[in-house]
Design a protein around this nucleic acid. Structure first.
Lengths: 76, 76
DNA sequence: GCTTAATGTATACTATTTTTTACACTGTGC
DNA sequence: GCACAGTGTAAAAAATAGTATACATTAAGC
């Protein structure tokens, strides 16, 4: 099963909004590696709740401003 | 290192508020096992962002109404 | 043309979350 | 007493998230 993450985020946009913060800077600020930021930005996997909270905190916005859950589209 | 989850939740309270929903019912509704609900309720680990979103949805509240991040208390 | 910063890709590895199965405990109804 | 619902515990295995390292690409500055 593939399940390509039902969660979207606008970390990239918010990074630029937040004083042009680089992936590396963000990664360091929240205590993860750059790889993690890249993978999350690209939606390759959704972060842990903890990582998500830290990211929102670092970007100065609420959790739900960064990540949005796209429900699997029920058939209707 | 132990890292006992910096995230708190009030799933249990919200379950009762939401029509006395049982752990089993909630688990089924969001597509995880009962074990997962128990572990999360007890704070044994924090869920994935996806699981967290589903739980909030099933309980009819916002993500940040269910889970709260307790920052590691900076020294001040 | 060389260097550097920022981003992306890949792979192997570790850690954490989630599942599965199985059993224990408590309260309620019969 | 026995059955059942709801909750809890435990441990192994599978799935997913995150790390570490190394290398490629692009744009900017010198």
């Amino acid at each position: 099963m593939v399940k390509p993450t039902a969660i979207k985020n606008n970390i990239r946009a918010l990074r630029f909004a937040a004083d042009e913060m680089t992936q590396d800077a963000l990664a360091k600020e929240i205590g993860v590696t750059r790889q993690t930021i890249i993978a999350i930005e690209q939606g390759r996997y959704s972060p842990s709740l903890e990582a998500a909270f830290k990211i929102a905190l670092a970007l100065g916005v609420g959790l739900e401003d960064v990540f949005t859950y796209a429900p699997p589209a029920s058939k209707e």
